[in-house]
Write a protein that binds this DNA or RNA. Structure first.
Lengths: 116, 116
DNA sequence: ATTTTATTTAACCATTTGGTTAAATGTTAA
DNA sequence: TTAACATTTAACCAAATGGTTAAATAAAAT
């Protein structure tokens, strides 16, 4: 369970904060593809696509392999694992067990009693 | 299982893409607190903190309740649930079952055979 | 060898972001 | 009712983001 650095989380969450980039990851989930294939659904110039790709690469979410003149893009999901891991700490909150301070403190007190 | 809108995911991931804001959520996990208490650990002006708070609010991650002249900040983790749900689609990838196109297609073919 | 194809880099632009200081707002305390 | 406190709004700034077009690079096809 290796925790991601703050900068790594910054890059991962920032990469995910754009619908085009999330959609690109969705496409790559169906399988590797070239940059042009990846670009096809978007009404956007190739340089714009190229820039999105670089954001995804810097976040470690995509790798490119040169195959002649085409570059194959491959999904790398590991940063998503780290990001999910970070969020897991909040699961108890969205599941409703600890939606206020009182309950959390009560829980901490109980844990404190067990270990003493 | 209500899926979040693209704009909601944009705002959530963008809010999480900053270490100060993630740290603020961490603080709120320990319990509600005032804006000043929330601001205390950061070498940053109050207006800067106020802006971070508004980003968290627009993402639905924090709510503020007026209590006289102080405003109490409360963690709202629901958007984290939605974001995690979005990421879950990729779990099979980071767990390594589908790290390439061939394996995914094979799996899809198997599923296709079951249902026919 | 030349042209076409795939993709990136460069230069530019408008908007957003993350910060600042100074002023405004609203509430409590003297 | 005046002063202090908690917080926000306004105005500003520099850097980052997401897009553009035009030019560069590199491999493949003719």
């Amino acid at each position: 369970m290796v925790s991601a650095s703050a900068e790594q989380l910054d890059r991962t969450f920032a990469a995910l904060a754009d619908p085009t980039r999330r959609s690109m990851l969705g496409r790559l989930m169906e399988g590797d593809c070239s940059v042009s294939e990846l670009a096809e659904p978007y009404e956007m110039s190739m340089p714009a696509v190229s820039k999105h790709l670089r954001v995804l690469e810097r976040a470690g979410l995509v790798e490119q392999q040169r195959e002649g003149r085409v570059r194959r893009c491959v999904l790398q999901a590991e940063p998503l694992r780290s990001a999910t891991e970070w969020m897991e700490a909040y699961r108890v909150f969205w599941e409703g067990q600890f939606d206020n301070l009182e309950q959390l403190l009560k829980k901490q007190k109980e844990e404190g009693m067990q270990s003493e």
